[in-house]
Simulated assay, not measured.
Amino acid sequence: MHIGIQLADIVAHTCSTMLLETLGEVTKKVVLDMLGDSVYDGLKVELGFEMWAGIRYAFLAKNKQNPIDGFDLANVDVYPWGLFIDDSAGERISNAAMERFGENYLGCIH
Rank of each mutant, 00 (worst) to 15 (best):
C108I: 08
E21S: 11
I10S: 04
D33H: 13
G102S: 05
G90N: 10
G36M: 08
D69E: 06
M51H: 09
I55Y: 05
F59T: 01
V45C: 04
D33L: 10
I93N: 10
A97L: 07
V26W: 00
F84K: 14
K64I: 02
F101V: 12
W81G: 07
K28D: 13
H110P: 15
A61K: 15
H2S: 11
L35I: 11
A97S: 02
D41W: 07
N63F: 07
R100G: 04
W52G: 02
M1V: 06
L43V: 14
N95W: 08
M98D: 00
D69N: 15
D41P: 01
E99Y: 02
M1W: 05
A61T: 14
G4P: 04
A58K: 02
E25Y: 09
M34S: 10
Q6P: 07
H110S: 09
K29N: 13
D33E: 11
V31A: 08
E91N: 10
I85C: 00
S94A: 13
D72V: 10
S38Y: 01
D33R: 14
E21Q: 13
D72G: 10
N75W: 14
N104K: 12
V11F: 15
I10H: 09
I109N: 06
K64P: 02
D86C: 13
I68L: 07
T27N: 15
R92K: 15
D69W: 06
V39D: 03
E99M: 05
L106T: 11
G102T: 06
M51W: 06
M51Y: 11
D77G: 07
A61G: 09
G102H: 06
I109V: 15
G48P: 02
E99I: 07
S38H: 06
Y57H: 14
W52E: 09
V11A: 13
Y105L: 02
G82M: 01
G90E: 08
Q65S: 10
E25R: 12
I3E: 11
E21C: 03
D69M: 07
V39L: 01
A53L: 03
H2F: 10
L23N: 03
V26H: 09
Q6S: 12
M51S: 08
I68Y: 06
Q6W: 13
A12Y: 02
T14C: 14
I10D: 00
H13D: 14
G4Y: 05
P80G: 00
I93D: 11
E25S: 01
F49G: 07
D72T: 03
F59S: 03
L83G: 05
L43K: 15
I55Q: 02
G24Y: 11
T22A: 13
